[in-house]
Design a protein around this nucleic acid. Structure first.
Lengths: 339, 339
DNA sequence: CGGAGTCGAGAAAACGATTCCTCGGAACAG
DNA sequence: CTGTTCCGAGGAATCGTTTTCTCGACTCCG
């Protein structure tokens, strides 16, 4: 094995191809673009030269000229949240189908960081932006500014003040499915462990829960609000254990919360689902691998990703079309934690 | 709320700034770049004009001119593997510190896809490429070609035939730490559940295990090789259960394998760690959240990410420097699965 | 007072593509 | 045979920067 990396080779440009084929730059470009108005013989020569030289167009130069980078930017509150991972993966897959790529940014749950990353992506001239906003209030200005410049889709969460396209799932239906499922199983007293309603998603799930489960079945002390993290799941479990009496069931706002909560409950000797049944949200790989596996609300994330990209492409065509909200129906996946 | 997205606004260029400030384009550019050779009064006017107009340089045009995109490409075999997620997150964080960004690609465990994505990134003119190669053999040609064009760092796994910089961790030390730990706990008969040695990582871990544990303590039927997936973990567990007698302990090649394996063992009534102790690799959030939490080998992934970026930057300066392999020492994190 | 040296700003040439515009030649009609 | 029309290929402009030249003015020294 050689012990030094190979040195860089000079890039071959369309100029070289044109020279090799004995045609003008313009003709070479047209031939490579597959335009019909070029003499087939010349096309042959250009293609030949291109192949011989191993030509590949410089994406930057092309983008500068055509004002199109074939790149989509995506900003998520935290890369390590399994739900966002699934979203990232789905978007990446959709983009790969059309040879586009994904510029990924992590906002680290901080609206200031988020604003900086959005701004960066805008000036990188991405063709569109998919954003899961960190917070309802704080994310508004940067989103607003971005939407002036290019197509933006809000994903999963919605900042009301900023009129962009949106893709999400129906949290009311999802939470109702959870509660109905639990009630059919015989649960009456149900707790809710979710996140503070600083995001539309958290707020909707909370509201939906309150609409289904009155204070007689869920006293306020069982309405536990923190954030989308494992730490919070643990903490919430402890606070439930300290209070007197346990609920028949718990609805969690996310798998990452539920997994930690279940672990904590079980290590305190509580059986799941016998003593307390658990349902959760996201249907992540995480939740499917625990013991017992989690009953969880599944969002059609691949479809949602595809729709997000579709909306971006669409708005590119008609920048001033009315904003569109695509809301997908979720489905409850029943597993061991309620069985 | 208005019901239509805001229309795009015309971009303001350095030309506009120059005009507004009453100077030439060249001077405006220099002033904005903070070059000392510009009259302070002119600098003031340019900065003022720039702020007034809300100017931000077009990253594409700058990149085309300077041949530097401030973007790093990263290709991983599968976005959803928790180890790669941690790597992606760490790299993104390091890049964010210097206002650079990450073009992320998923090779879907397929060397052909991988080759396509690498090629794409090269022609996007990323400043460097961090690749976790899909396979030792199949990934070579694309990597080789990429390394001709720009700085490449192989991460975690190494393709021997391609001389690029490398960042990884010491698998021999890691596996030995696992085995030593288990033996101190009193385990004698130890099984290994890992991946087929199609990647350097899997091969090294397997070899290290064999070097520590002879055939008398681990008969060949306890050397189970599949892939880095939960499905394989489950399958391996079943195959162990079907054979006669269980080992005292199992070393797993990755958390994602271990988690599924533990779930399967426990649902067959095997107690962990009492009957069988488990150690694993990656120290992912996944493994920390299960019951019992996994004892696992932790790699200093943040340091490794920083080193990878540092190597890319370094090679940019000196393209023909000798290739460098940075191998980090892992550490065993002891948790419930061996306690 | 004149010539060498300095310094700073503007003009112009990259970077590497796409695409508009022009123009020569062929075809065809009158 | 001449005048349009059409068509296809090449020249040049463009995208928005950075950076190299170039050149005029000013300083300083002999």
């Amino acid at each position: 094995m050689p012990d030094r990396a190979t040195p860089r080779s000079r890039k071959v440009t369309v100029r070289d191809v044109a020279a090799e084929a004995g045609v003008s730059i313009a003709t070479a470009s047209r031939a490579l673009a597959g335009q019909a108005s070029v003499d087939p013989e010349l096309v042959r020569r250009v293609l030949r030269a291109s192949a011989d030289l191993g030509y590949r167009a410089n994406a930057l130069a092309r983008a500068l000229r055509t004002q199109r980078t074939d790149t989509i930017g995506m900003v998520v509150p935290s890369i390590s949240n399994p739900y966002f991972i699934a979203a990232i993966e789905a978007v990446e897959l959709v983009l790969a189908e059309s040879d586009r790529s994904l510029l990924l940014c992590d906002a680290r749950e901080d609206a200031t960081v988020e604003a900086g990353r959005i701004d960066l992506l805008v000036h990188r001239m991405v063709d569109g932006l998919i954003v899961v906003p960190v917070a309802t209030e704080a994310s508004a200005p940067a989103l607003e500014a971005a939407a002036q410049e290019l197509p933006v889709v809000q994903f999963d969460r919605f900042v009301d003040a900023v009129p962009t396209d949106f893709v999400g799932s129906d949290n009311t239906v999802g939470v109702r499915a959870c509660v109905d499922h639990l009630r059919r199983r015989g649960a009456r007293r149900i707790a809710f462990v979710g996140a503070q309603p600083t995001t539309s998603t958290a707020a909707e799930r909370l509201r939906a829960f309150r609409d289904c489960v009155g204070v007689e079945d869920c006293p306020d002390r069982w309405l536990l609000l923190g954030d989308f993290s494992a730490r919070w799941g643990r903490e919430a479990a402890r606070s439930l254990l300290e209070g007197e009496g346990l609920p028949d069931a718990i609805v969690c706002g996310a798998d990452v919360i539920a997994v930690a909560l279940v672990a904590e409950l079980r290590s305190a000797g509580v059986t799941v689902p016998e003593q307390v049944a658990i349902v959760s949200y996201d249907d992540s790989t995480l939740g499917a691998l625990t013991v017992p596996p989690l009953t969880s609300v599944r969002q059609p994330i691949e479809d949602m990703a595809r729709e997000a990209v579709r909306l971006l492409d669409h708005r590119r065509e008609r920048a001033d079309a009315a904003v569109r909200k695509s809301v997908f129906p979720p489905a409850l996946v029943v597993r061991g934690s309620t069985r």
